[in-house]
């Protein structure tokens, strides 16, 4: 893990150097950055555009996707596909965004891009109704089952409560892990964002529910931190989460949070929903455990309005 981070930082440094002169010019033409461009942002918050467009701009601000995806690498894109509801209900990540990220990863040279979720409703129905299966196939990615125990391999977790988990084999074998949750209200975990989305790469979630859910979510967030967290806040379920009852639960916020820091990303998204990060158990615990930083004032944030 350390070598990976070191390499990442190295790559980041060189890329930032080479791109710093180029990007601001490119931005000036079509965006109104509310703050001067800094180039080494910890977190990018963007609003006002379509999901695909916002992703491209946010990634550009972080130094381009090539910073995260190298030629020949194996990539996993993990959306939330938990429920058998259409995209308008905002219980699953925006299908267009997932298809777009898959496409961009392949363009960046990824050998393969896999997409899956351990769904709550019947998985075939979820994959289909969410529109994500179709979007991934169209983009050239591989949509993979997440509903079989044999796909999950036991690992040990150095958490306060969580010591063991079974994790999807692709998460263990991939080079790049891109976490693409949707921001929504949640009846158990208060909010469901990036850390909560990782419950879709493990098998026995009931154990978590029985044994201090917030602590388990925080414990697991430190196991395999996603290389990138892209929070879809285009449509946001503000009540009746995580499944929702009707479109009245949804507020169209046309926003997105992108960060390599899963805790910071969750903190920013929580604020977007009007909640305080410190009030959310798993965010506060993950911050305490130094898995990431929820103190947004100490972070370099790039704010973009399309």
């Amino acid at each position: 893990m350390e070598r990976r981070n070191f390499l990442k930082n190295l790559a980041l440094g060189t890329l930032a150097g080479s791109l710093a002169s180029r990007i601001p010019g490119a931005f000036a033409s079509d965006t109104h950055a509310s703050e001067p461009f800094v180039g080494d942002a910890d977190l990018v918050a963007i609003k006002g555009g379509e999901p695909e467009q916002m992703f491209d701009k946010a990634i550009e601000a972080l130094g381009g996707l090539k910073r995260f995806v190298k030629k020949g690498q194996k990539v996993v894109v993990k959306p939330n596909i938990g429920w058998d509801v259409p995209p308008e209900r905002a219980a699953n990540t925006h299908p267009g965004l997932i298809g777009h990220i898959v496409k961009r990863c392949l363009e960046a040279g990824a050998a393969e891009v896999f997409v899956f979720d351990n769904t709550c409703d019947n998985w075939l129905k979820c994959y289909n109704t969410s529109g994500i299966e179709e979007a991934v196939k169209k983009a050239g990615g591989k949509i993979v089952p997440g509903n079989e125990e044999r796909l999950y391999k036991p690992v040990s977790i150095s958490g306060r409560v969580l010591k063991n988990a079974s994790v999807h084999e692709l998460i263990l074998s991939c080079d790049v892990f891109i976490n693409v949750p949707i921001l929504k209200h949640h009846s158990s975990a208060d909010v469901s964002i990036a850390m909560k989305n990782l419950m879709g790469i493990v098998w026995d979630r009931r154990w978590w529910h029985r044994n201090n859910l917030h602590q388990c979510i925080a414990d697991f967030a430190g196991f395999r931190k996603p290389d990138l967290n892209v929070i879809d806040a285009y449509r946001v379920m503000i009540k009746n989460g995580p499944r929702g009852v009707s479109e009245a639960d949804v507020k169209i916020m046309k926003s997105m949070i992108v960060s390599t820091d899963i805790v910071a990303a969750d903190a920013a998204a929580t604020k977007l929903m009007g909640n305080e990060p410190a009030q959310i158990g798993h965010i506060r615990l993950a911050h305490e455990m130094k898995i990431g930083n929820m103190d947004l004032s100490s972070l370099k944030i790039q704010r973009i309005t399309v």
Binding site: S34, A45, K47, G48, E88, A90, R235, V245, S246, E247, A248, V250, K251, I252, M253, K254, S255, A267, A268, K271, L272, G274, L296, I301, R303
Partner: peptide, 18 residues
């Protein structure tokens, strides 16, 4: 019937709350 309606409100934040 559960309380239902088929419209979502559009509310893009003016400024980011952070």
């Amino acid at each position: 019937k559960p309380e239902e309606s088929d419209t979502s409100k559009e509310e893009v934040p003016e400024e980011f709350p952070f």
